[in-house]
């Protein structure tokens, strides 16, 4: 006989959460903008100057207005979003994979491995993230790849922390112990019983870290250590707009709004993920 299986995947539940839906819509729009910039399809060249159109307010020609060099702010925002997303995605990919593997292995196997992993995380946590990133960036270089690696290294200990603690308590739970009595292999226990139970925390952390990484990248650019002029970056644009905002508000509005939308949408996605990945939080 055939039995109806509960095969509804987690994203079925994700789209039941309003926050998750709003987050994913904003994030999709930003991603489309980033793709437009990636394929050089922005309305104007993001770095092309136009002396005839300096500091023009938003209009039909330049929907976000122009900056002090007559560059189209909308095109620059799209390019900035592309750079910010690229840096944050790569850095969080590095941090989450390295951090989770170290955290899960350290927590489950304990011993010397765990001691080394936790001591190193502690050292990293002793310094503010932006300072660590600054130090690493100044020894690596200023390309977007260097920035991504620096931020990735800085955020690795966060993933060690969020995975190691739960694994430490999960491995003492009765259901992991009963797996051992039932003769499950260590890889099965690690990947089928422990990892899925820390995955929601990791995914939520990924969404949050993406938004922090965007802010860190912006901070580095703001301080002149990330993206270099004339390339566009949200942080760099905010930094340049500081002096102009008093009389040309649109120079600050475009990049700030893009930053806010990116950070807020990633936080909303994090909320939606947390709710949808945990069966006990779903309504039956």
């Amino acid at each position: 006989m055939k039995i109806k299986r509960e095969t509804k995947p987690w994203f079925y539940y994700y789209f039941k959460s309003l926050n998750g839906i709003i987050g994913i819509i904003i994030l999709s729009l930003l991603s489309i903008g980033a793709l437009v910039a990636l394929f050089h399809a922005t309305p104007y060249d993001p770095v092309a100057q136009d002396v005839a159109a300096i500091l023009k307010p938003p209009s039909g020609h330049h929907i976000f207005g122009t900056d002090q060099f007559g560059r189209d702010i909308f095109s620059r925002v799209l390019d900035g979003v592309r750079r910010s997303l690229a840096v944050s995605i790569l850095s969080v990919a590095i941090a989450s994979i390295a951090g989770s593997l170290l955290g899960v292995a350290g927590g489950y196997f304990g011993t010397i491995l765990d001691t080394i992993v936790t001591r190193m995380s502690d050292v990293f946590f002793a310094f503010p993230a932006i300072l660590m990133a600054l130090a690493i960036v100044s020894s690596l270089g200023h390309s977007w790849l260097d920035t991504a690696i620096a931020i990735g290294i800085v955020y690795t200990p966060i993933f060690v922390r969020v995975t190691r603690g739960p694994v430490l308590s999960l491995k003492e739970t009765d259901y992991v112990k009963s797996g051992r009595v039932l003769g499950f292999s260590t890889p099965r226990i690690l990947f089928k019983h422990l990892l899925p139970n820390v995955m929601p925390i990791v995914l939520v952390q990924i969404a949050l870290s993406l938004s922090w990484a965007i802010l860190t990248e912006s901070g580095l650019s703001f301080l002149g250590l990330g993206t270099q002029a004339p390339d566009a970056s949200l942080g760099l644009m905010v930094s340049e707009a500081q002096a102009l905002a008093a009389f040309a508000w649109w120079t600050l509005a475009g990049p700030s709004l893009a930053l806010i939308f990116a950070v807020v949408s990633l936080n909303l996605v994090g909320d939606g993920l947390r709710d949808s990945l945990d069966p006990t939080r779903r309504s039956i």
């Binding site: 739970t173 009765d174 259901y175 009963s178 019983h193 139970n197 069966p279 006990t280």
Partner: peptide
Amino acid sequence: SSLNPRQT
């Protein structure tokens, strides 16, 4: 606590 909460 002796059943994995994520497994049917």
